[in-house]
């Protein structure tokens, strides 16, 4: 039996903490600066400076966000529980009339709120600047990009909270958080690609697209590619990836599953 008031109390405290130590505004500024740099200088290598088209801009932003947001979410959440345990404040908290699940959800929601605010502020500001230069459909895509970026952040925040429950101390938690980042952002795709090449492409056919769904970073990439008609061919993924799996609702549901699963593990192991 969950008491919403207890969750809300913890959520409000966590969120206020991040506002007060200027975390929200600092991360929003980082997002804004990176996004502006990509929007206006992204084509500098080709000898151009200035805004090109929305498809290329989003593609560039995606490859930035796929590294940056998981990292920031993991840094934000890795000590949520283990930090309290190490400082000694966890016992006092748990002696209150609050269950472990309420505490976990309260922490997760508070940090989620902080990260979501930063993402909306940072990329929203750039979206407003773009609004004058593009049409409604492009803005719709940009909004989709922002929404999927928020989902990506929540997935890695959920993973961070799980790490925070499983780790014995903060040092181990930070190590594990970096490991999670490496695994999903760098190593996973490399291994898939390696297997695909080694097996001469035979192994891939049916399994490869499914395996992509087991990496939230890949789902995020797919969500933003398949919503842009021009880039399907640009990436050459349309041939590998069956249309049945490219449904944004399916991909969105997978992201939500990726948010729930680590939290469920965290709750299960939280003693």
């Amino acid at each position: 039996m969950l008491e919403a008031k207890q969750i809300r109390t913890v959520t409000a405290k966590e969120f206020r903490d991040r506002i007060r130590n200027r975390w929200v505004i600092a991360v929003a500024i980082i997002f804004t600066l990176f996004a502006l740099a990509i929007v206006y200088f992204g084509a500098a290598q080709q000898g151009e400076v200035g805004f090109r088209n929305i498809e290329l801009t989003i593609a560039s932003l995606v490859s930035l966000v796929i590294y940056l947001i998981p990292l920031i979410a993991l840094i934000l959440g890795y000590d949520a529980i283990v930090g309290e345990r190490e400082r000694g404040s966890l016992d006092l908290l748990l002696s209150m009339p609050i269950t472990r699940l309420e505490l976990l959800l309260g922490k997760f929601l508070g940090l989620s709120l902080a990260l979501t605010c930063s993402t909306l502020l940072g990329f929203g500001l750039v979206g407003l600047l773009l609004a004058g230069q593009t049409d409604a459909e492009a803005l719709y895509h940009y909004a989709g990009f922002m929404f999927s970026a928020i989902l990506l952040g929540l997935v890695f925040l959920s993973l961070a909270v799980m790490v925070s429950v499983l780790a014995r101390d903060r040092a181990r938690a930070s190590g594990a958080a970096i490991g999670v980042w490496f695994l999903f952002v760098l190593v996973y795709d490399l291994i898939l690609l390696g297997v695909l090449v080694l097996s001469g492409g035979e192994f891939g056919e049916d399994l490869f697209p499914l395996l992509l769904l087991f990496n939230p970073a890949d789902i995020f990439r797919l969500l933003n590619i398949f919503s842009l008609e021009d880039l399907k061919t640009f990436y050459g993924l349309a041939t590998v990836f069956p249309a049945s799996l490219s449904n944004p609702w399916l991909l969105g549901s997978m992201m939500v599953a990726w948010i729930i699963a680590p939290l469920a593990v965290a709750q299960w192991r939280f003693k």
Partner: peptide, 30 residues
Amino acid sequence: RRAIGYLPENLAFYENLTGLETLRFFARLK
């Protein structure tokens, strides 16, 4: 638990909160 008070040996509070905010946070939970 609402009828139980606990003062742990190794006290740790949230450094960002004021004394009054700290008490209000725990009062809300209780």
